[in-house]
């Protein structure tokens, strides 16, 4: 169980063995608390899922790349 004092935050429950494991890692990495560590992990997970949902793993197509190069050439930034 994680208890948080801040009123903008809520308390959630996680299995004790998982909490112990996370707590060790949090301490080794000098996170302030188990809560900040768990929050960090969740934030990262969610943001990556979001970015994947929104855009997938974006790469620039050859056609777009040529278009950008043409613009750079137009301004003399590329030969």
């Amino acid at each position: 169980m994680i208890t948080l004092a801040n009123t903008d935050e809520i308390t959630i429950s996680i299995p004790k063995d998982l909490a112990e494991k996370l707590k060790k890692r949090a301490e080794n990495a000098e996170f302030d608390s188990l809560s900040t560590y768990v929050t960090y992990i969740l934030r990262q997970v969610i943001s990556h899922i979001e970015i994947d949902e929104n855009e997938g793993d974006k790469t620039i197509t050859r056609k777009d790349e040529e278009k950008i190069k043409e613009k750079l050439r137009s301004l003399g930034y590329l030969d």
């Binding site: 080794n28 990495a29 996170f31 960090y40 990556h48 899922i49 994947d52 793993d57």
Partner: peptide
């Protein structure tokens, strides 16, 4: 140095996540 350990733990998590494609 410890601070780096913390950041590298963060990097480890982020890099791991980069490999996981939803």
């Amino acid at each position: 140095e410890k601070y780096y350990a913390n950041l590298s733990e963060k990097d480890r998590i982020r890099n791991l996540l980069k490999r996981i494609k939803t």
